[in-house]
Structure formats: C-alpha cells, structure tokens
C-alpha cells in the first residue's frame, strides 16, 4: 500500500501463503477432483453422461427453477430495499430480520415447511387436489423451494448500497414533483445497478445448487422432478461415479462462469 505502514515482507508473504494454501486446499482441490474424475474415462464417456436424456431434463428443470427464482426475488428485492431504506417506520428491524431468515434456515426445514403447507397434512391439500394442482413432489414445489432459499439474496445486496446512498436525492426529486417510478428509474437505479446485477449473480449461483430443500419436495421422479444436484445424487447412488462427476462438472462450469461474470461486473462497476 502506501509504504508508510509496511509489515516486514516476511509477515506479508506468510499471510499470503497461508491464505493461498487454505483456499487452495479447501476450494480448488475439491473443484479439481470433480473435473479430474469426470474426464477419467475419456471424453466419450463424459459426453455420453452429459447428453443423457435424464441429464438434459435435469438441466432444463434447474434452469427453469433458477430463472423463476431470479425474477421473483428481483421484484421482491427492489421493493423490499426501497421500502426499508427510503422510509422510517415501526417494525423495520423485524422485517429486515424476517427477510434474512431464509439464509440461516436449514434447507431441510425450508423443505419441511412447504411440505406442511402444501402436502397431505395441509388443510389446503383437498382444494389443490380438486383443482388438479400438485405442488409437492412436482415442479411447483421445486420452484417454490428454490425461491425460498434465495429469497433475500438480491435485497441484501441492494439495502447496504441504498443505505449509504441516503434519501436526499430522492427527496429532492419528489419535491420537484417527479413520480415514484421516474425517481426510481432516473435517480435510484443508476446507483444500484451494479449491486443488483451482483445480487442476481449470487441468486443464480445459489439457486442452481440448492439440494436440501429441493430434495424433500422433489420425490426424485426421474426425468420429471430431478434437478441437477438431485440427479447427481442419484447417479452417485447408482455407482455411476464418472457420470456423477461429469454432471457435477456442468454445475462447476456454470459456477465458475458466474464467478467470472461477477468479477467482470465488479471491475466495470469500480471503473
């Protein structure tokens, strides 16, 4: 940094090495294992696993759930962030705590909650069945679970930014007679667009990989309600390790792509 307060370079490199070693062992090694295992039996086996019809349908379902989660949570995130940062009202702390709940709630519990709400124990169930709507053990259940686990991701990115930014500009615009949407579009949005994009990236990443909650609500119907992580588990249980790792590598590739995207976004935003 600015030279005035420099640790001895011994300390500096020691700390860097510790960090690198820790991240290398904890993050890169597992990643490497996935890639290495999936190509162990050659590219042909890999391609066969990746283009298998169950894999393809799992990819499609994962994308469907992820896209829905991102859309719903973006809408929610924008409104919630606006509501929490631009106004003062009672119960604000409670609301922001409630928003954060899905991050710390065990995915297993999340799945259980929706099971109780829409499953056979629920008072809603007879009505749902009458309308021939299945939520649990069907695609809607998977989507709802995915929305839940990624619920706060976008609002959490937006709130700090808006909080630092304050409300002066919006107030001024409002006093000059601008409408709500105009204020948002012209005044607020330019400030939060990078945070929003970052939130979307995180939300996508998490939605893709959700396992626990989805596992409870899915019923594991092959080709129907299997997301990629569930499909991986099934392959793993079938002793098809190479295909399991191969399908994992799709997710790893998506994850890495998303992280690269994130870095690019951040670089652009900093500029």
């Amino acid at each position: 940094m600015d030279g005035k307060r420099k640790e001895s370079s011994l300390v500096k490199w020691l700390l860097i090495d510790i960090s690198a070693l820790f991240l290398g062992v904890m993050l890169l090694l597992p990643l490497g294992i996935v890639i290495w295992q999936s190509f162990k039996q050659g590219i042909a086996v890999y391609m066969k696993a990746v283009t298998d019809k169950y894999t393809v349908s799992a990819v499609l379902l994962t994308i469907e759930a992820t896209v829905t989660a991102v859309i719903v949570n973006t809408v929610f995130g924008l409104f919630a962030a606006w509501c929490i940062t631009k106004f003062k009202f009672k119960g604000k702390k409670l609301i922001s705590t409630l928003i954060d709940i899905p991050v710390t709630v065990s995915p297993v519990i999340a799945g259980l909650m929706f099971m109780l709400l829409y499953g056979k124990q629920s008072a809603l169930y007879p009505y749902l069945q009458k309308m021939h709507i299945s939520v649990v053990f069907a695609v809607p259940g998977i989507i709802i679970a995915t929305v839940f686990v990624t619920f706060p991701f976008i609002s959490r990115e937006l709130i700090p930014v808006l909080e630092t930014h304050g409300t002066d500009e919006e107030e001024a615009a409002a006093l000059m007679g601008a409408g709500g949407f105009t204020i948002f579009r012209k005044v607020t949005f330019p400030h939060i667009k990078w945070a929003l994009l970052y939130g979307i990236v995180l939300c996508t990443a998490r939605a893709m990989g959700e396992f626990g909650a989805v596992s409870i609500l899915s019923g594991h119907l092959r080709g129907k309600t299997n997301t990629l992580p569930l499909h991986i588990e099934i392959l793993f249980n079938e002793f098809q390790y190479v295909p399991a790792f191969a399908v994992s590598s799709i997710l790893v590739a998506m994850a890495v792509m998303i992280l690269v995207l994130r870095s690019v976004i951040e670089a652009v935003a900093r500029r």
């Binding site: 990643l31 959700e210 396992f211 626990g212 992580p229 991986i232 588990e233 994992s248 997710l251 998303i258």
Partner: peptide, 11 residues
C-alpha cells in the same frame, strides 16, 4: 456459494 453443496460434499 456457487458450487452446489452436494457436489462439494461428494468431492
């Protein structure tokens, strides 16, 4: 965050 936990667990 991005790597599915199941994959991480397996690896």
């Amino acid at each position: 965050f991005a790597l599915p936990t199941a994959v991480a667990g397996m690896a």
